[in-house]
Design a protein around this nucleic acid. Structure first.
Length: 544
RNA sequence: GCGCCCGUAGCUCAAUCGGAUAGAGCAUUGGACUACGAAUCCAAAGGUUGGAGGUUCGAGUCCUCCCGGGCGCGCCA
């Protein structure tokens, strides 16, 4: 976290509100870090950037414990070379904090809810849900590691018309199995899993088809809901995703939250009646038009549930921040929900919606369309069985989520041993093997005080030390920007540096002091790799 | 028609909320295991960042307009 220290030094000499940045320059010859301080200050102070840079560089060069060299370059960048002793001390800092290295108090204990997947319980999870699951779960882990108090939640849409259709789908299939000729409706769930459910239900309730339709439909619906939901839960668990709360939409109604929320909006004067329906004046808060919250039939809309749900998140449960992870096809929904928060007197910025773009499934070089209704999709479970959890999670986390993703199943399967995830895991396993070797020759890792860190003096040593030093900042940036993929790319960088080191230097050698220094470095790298992989929900194997 | 997202190497993707000569992996070509694991490493090649303007010391990134792709625009969820 040397960046913070450098920044502090610079700001001693400049107005504090300038957007001064400290970052790694594009090439190694330009130093360890660089700042644009003189460039951004030039305008304000009405002085040529290079002249300002020279003055500033001179002052900064006096911090000899921090910098070994300070130079002005280009249009007015100041480049720093950090003192080697600073880098060498990093290994001790990493080991001293152990597994906790990288944890920060950035979130200051703010309460954050991350709601993700929340797929309708009308069928198994497919690939697209997998992407949302990987991103949401990892984001939650990162936020928690960055000092937020995180609750992971799944919202279950267990009422409404889709539930009726689900029940009827099962019922119709059951009658079909019993030998009846059924003209199965287009808009019902046609996947094979419905037939399986019907068969299973018939086995348990042989009397099903003799019951009055009303009763039979309810039994079908409840059975399907329960089975599908527990299947979803199993799939997610096998994907390494667990939740703190499974929140039922029905419960929202039973507790009277929906009526209460609508009453609150009405009282504030944001509802009105038109054509027999009740409308929310969303257009007054930036949405493009007003929205119905209660149909002319008296039935509340899905939007009404969501109003109540989000009101409950903020007002009843007191979350400081709510992150919703949605499929990008719901993006049109964002403005109306933000409008609700404004109408309720809440800062809409406290709701962050992460839109996960589509996953396009490529099969045989052709785009395959997926639809739950039509029963055409590759399930998350199939993917897990074919490709494996680590590779699937890692693949989803090597992309920023606002770009569509082409998932070529055959390609990922055939190249599974070349998937970048193994590159990172192999770095970890290699280090584990180094320690096995060290133990074999009776070399014990040194205690913290005894690390001969001054022996870590090659270019490859410094490359690793710098990366270790940057880890906490990577976590913070990933947390603030809600971009889990930053951690993935950091791990790839660290693994690359490690593999490079491995081919150039030996950890265990005749020189015992040197070996002890390098083993300490190895331990630090292994620890950070393990921690990073853990944040991604990917295993860190000792052997592969 | 209106709105949101995307367009970067043959392919899949990065690029530190405007920074210096746009980077990785895969695929291609050529090299490296008698020492801690070759699931690795080294090298070559690969680009007018969809196009045209603009903003400024500086643009893949911001603004405008086109082109192409995706997704929305229900008293569905």
């Amino acid at each position: 976290m040397i960046v913070k220290r450098i920044r502090e030094e610079i700001l001693k000499h400049l107005p504090a509100d300038l957007p001064v940045k400290v970052e790694a320059p594009p090439r190694e010859e330009l130093g360890d870090y660089a700042t644009n301080a003189a460039l951004v200050a030039a305008g304000r102070l009405k002085r040529p950037p290079r002249e300002l840079a020279r003055e500033l560089a001179e002052k900064l060069a006096r911090c000899e414990d921090l910098f070994s060299r300070v130079e002005v370059a280009g249009p007015g960048f100041i480049n720093f070379w950090v003192a080697p002793t600073y880098w060498q001390a990093v290994v001790k800092r990493v080991l001293a904090r152990g597994e906790e290295y990288g944890r920060s108090d950035l979130g200051k204990g703010q309460r954050v809810q991350v709601e993700f997947v929340s797929a309708n319980p009308t069928g198994p999870l497919h690939i697209g849900h997998g992407r949302g699951a990987a991103v949401g779960d990892t984001l939650a882990r990162i936020l928690s590691f960055a000092g937020f108090e995180v609750v992971k939640e799944y919202y279950i849409n267990d009422r409404g018309r889709q539930m009726e259709i689900l029940g009827r789908s099962v019922w119709l299939r059951a009658r079909e199995i019993a030998g009846e000729k059924i003209d199965f409706p287009e808009d019902h769930y046609r996947g094979d899993y419905i037939r399986d459910l019907a068969r299973e239900l018939l086995a348990r309730r042989p009397d099903l088809l003799e019951l009055p339709e009303e009763e039979a439909l309810e039994i079908c619906r409840e059975f399907a809901l329960r089975e599908i939901l527990s299947g979803i839960r199993r799939d997610l668990e096998d994907f390494g995703v667990t939740y703190d709360v499974w929140y039922s939409e029905r419960e929202l109604y039973e507790k009277g939250e929906v009526e209460e929320a609508l009453a609150a909006l009405a009282e504030a004067g944001h509802l009105y009646e038109k054509e027999g329906a009740l409308w929310f004046r969303a257009s007054a808060f930036g949405d493009e038009k007003d929205r119905v919250v209660r149909r002319s039939t008296g039935e509340p809309t899905y939007f009404a549930s969501d109003i109540a749900y989000h009101r409950e998140k903020f007002l009843k449960r007191g979350f400081d921040l709510v992150v919703d992870v949605w499929g990008a096809d719901h993006h049109g929904y964002v403005p109306r929900l933000k409008a609700v928060l404004s109408a309720l007197g809440l800062d809409p910025e406290r709701l962050k919606v992460l839109l996960i773009q589509m996953v396009n499934l490529i099969e045989g070089g052709k785009l395959k369309s997926m639809s739950t209704r039509a029963g055409e999709f590759v399930t998350l479970r199939e993917l897990l069985e074919e490709v494996g959890r680590d590779a699937v999670r890692f693949t989803f986390l090597t992309r920023k989520c606002d770009a569509p993703l082409d998932f070529d199943v055959e390609l990922v399967k055939s190249q599974s041993s070349e998937n970048p995830v193994y590159y990172v895991q192999y770095a970890h396993a290699r280090l584990a093997s180094v320690f096995r070797k060290a133990e074999e020759v009776g070399l014990l890792p040194p205690s913290l005080e005894e690390i001969p860190a001054h022996r870590l003096d090659t270019a490859e040593d410094f490359r690793l030390l710098k990366l270790l030093d940057a880890f906490p900042r990577v976590i913070e940036e990933a947390a603030v920007s809600l971009e889990p993929h930053r951690v993935t790319y950091f791990l790839l960088d660290l693994a690359t540096a490690l593999h490079d080191y491995y081919t150039k230097h030996r950890f265990v050698s005749e020189d015992e002091e040197l070996s002890r220094a390098r083993l300490a470095l190895a331990r630090a790298v292994k620890q950070v790799l393990a921690r990073g992989l853990n944040l991604l929900g990917v295993s860190a194997p000792e052997r592969m």
